[in-house]
Design a binder for these strands. Structure first.
Lengths: 359, 359
DNA sequence: CTGTTAGCGCATTCAG
DNA sequence: CTGAATGCGCTAACAG
């Protein structure tokens, strides 16, 4: 007893075959009518569509279509922490925005995956129905899982990731940009400069920057920016922040500034604008005036509305970075071999830097 | 010429059948060995796993598995605007965080979908391989698309959505919470109170609040909060903001405050903490002191670090809201029928409200 | 506990 | 331009 063509729209589960039967054509013709992948007579197509309408058929089942074509139309975006944490960083959001927009053009969806997963759901990365994976601000990130994807034929691309063989990496000039800022401070006359860094490794807590931590660091942006600063101030000490937030910057700033005046740096280089804003607030908390008593620079070019003056910083094209990653993914899925790319940053002189006060 | 069991790992595309053949068991047994859905002898299981290892087989193809089981393991989250816009709102982020965490427990992924899609990619919502859809801060939102999902058997749940038949809605007490704040202001002696509202409809721009706009409003939170305020101050005028940002709040605040003193409200109720912070900054811009010259209240209970004092506001359990939605989805997929739910908010007296200045 | 038998719903060869 | 057959890779029944 076939279940085709005998039920009207009783169980609401019409298939393409049902539609074809009702329209008096073969399933393959009906398929073409829907996908447009092939020639159909207008009249036939109309008949098929009408039959579909009558049966309440709304289009091919995505699951079946996926199995057949070998593609799900979804790419994964792996972020380092849980959403509530990672998404406090405007750079991540903008990057994701650019990525989603670019992919959306082709009807591709974005599946959010978090690097920090419990043991139990580690499956998700390895078993996710994705056509490609984008690593966003992640470290080496479960190399095992990546290997599995590779073997499954799922291509990977990274954003500010570890340059590794065969995966395209979308980068920004972290080291050069930071060096620019450091040179700016040096030219103003600063010699005692301290750093507030991003996390250098997953799980970093607010702590003094050590050589060991720097060498063990797996998170590119933080590590590269330390190097950029040290290109100019080789002995600059620092504090490692755990996240890129105003609160973290404020705490780190306090650690650096709440000491006797002679031990206080004349400038602080924060590795993100959010951290820099926090440092400015920390200075204010301690009665120091910026930039008279302390110069502060950031990184990113995010506008911090609530700061009394614009930050001296370098701006990076976060959204464009995501869009580039999106285009790379598309190219990859089209069988191409996208190239790695490094975006420049642009120096922006704000109101938070000035020559150091006389001592 | 079968392609099973004759190739080692030549083309890297081993299937479960290949593994089964190599292990000398049937495909179904191998399947069970991987999924754990059924009884297998430890020894057999080990043999299967060993064979898989040798063939470089890393587990069942998610696409095939999905077709067979009828589930993709993915739920969609529909947000009102593009990521870069929607994710500027910490409440949305926290809600999404709670949702993702709860779903992640069961290995379910989150697919990001945006309500604001071009004509071309409108397919994605209708053709996305999702097991359920969560509407997050959306309006009635492409009713057509929703209907399609319904017919396809994809259940929908809403967060602060339009209560509609058959879909569970996770809500917060927007009206009651705002009324609480209004009563607080009234008790302090305020009579001239103005509002800064969230967008009442998709596409709203910064503009004065009119009755027409209020009645046409489709975005629950904004509309409900206006009603809550008007329960106490029936004639309160207002400005509709387009987004929940400090910048918008500042602009709206300026419109309300940059007038002759006699026409100035003594208190402003902003519908989000971000908007409220903007209003505080606007007041400062104009040389008004908060709360001496102007009282300000927010909504949400988001901590705004950069404000000189904590806001008087009501806090809502944003993350818990998302988690509740997640649990509802799980229940739905288990064949249950989750109930709608409304979370309470809690009043938090901060430092931004005081009795009005003498006139 | 394991094997056998059937499809899930569709897109694609290849003939006509 | 249309139709008939084939299997994507897997899992759910049941039978042994």
């Amino acid at each position: 007893m076939g279940r085709h063509s005998d039920n009207g729209e009783a169980d609401g589960r019409a298939t393409l075959s049902d539609v074809a039967a009702r329209a008096g054509v073969s399933p393959s013709t009906a398929s073409i009518a829907f996908s447009g992948q092939g020639p159909v007579a207008e009249a036939t197509k109309a008949r098929v569509l009408a039959a579909a309408e009558e049966l309440g058929y709304t289009g091919p089942d995505p699951l079946a279509r996926s199995l057949r074509t070998g593609r799900s139309g979804i790419v994964g975006a792996l972020i380092p922490q849980r959403i509530g944490t990672s998404f406090r960083d405007p750079v991540i959001i903008q990057t994701l925005d650019g990525l989603a927009e670019e992919l959306g053009q082709g009807g591709t969806g974005l599946l959010l995956l978090s690097e920090r997963t419990r043991e139990t759901d580690r499956v998700s990365l390895e078993a996710a129905p994705i056509d490609a994976l984008v690593l966003l601000g992640c470290g080496v990130s479960s190399p095992a899982a990546i290997a599995v994807l590779h073997r499954r034929g799922v291509p990977v691309i990274t954003i500010e990731g570890e340059p590794s063989a065969g995966v395209a990496n979308i980068d920004v000039d972290n080291r050069g940009g930071t060096r620019l800022l450091a040179e700016h401070l040096r030219d103003l006359g600063h010699r005692d400069v301290a750093l507030v860094t991003l996390a250098l490794d997953v799980g970093d807590e607010l702590a003094p920057l050590t050589d060991a931590a720097l060498e063990a660091g797996t998170l590119r942006p933080g590590v590269a920016r330390v190097h950029g600063a040290r290109d100019v101030f080789p002995a600059a000490p620092g504090i490692i922040a755990s996240g890129s937030t105003i609160a973290d910057g404020r705490a780190a700033g306090r650690m650096l500034l709440d000491v006797e005046a002679s031990a206080r740096p004349t400038a602080i280089m924060a590795q993100s604008d959010l951290l820099a804003a926090g440092v400015v607030f920390a200075a204010q908390d301690l009665g120091l005036s910026v930039p008279a008593d302390l110069s502060v620079v950031g990184f990113d070019g995010v506008r911090i509305d609530e700061l009394p003056m614009p930050l001296t910083t370098v701006s990076q094209p976060a959204q464009e970075k995501g869009a580039a990653a999106g285009r790379a993914v598309v190219e990859l899925l089209d069988g191409g071999q996208p190239e790695s790319r490094c975006f420049p940053v642009v120096f922006e002189r704000g109101g938070t830097t000035a020559p150091p006060a006389e001592r």
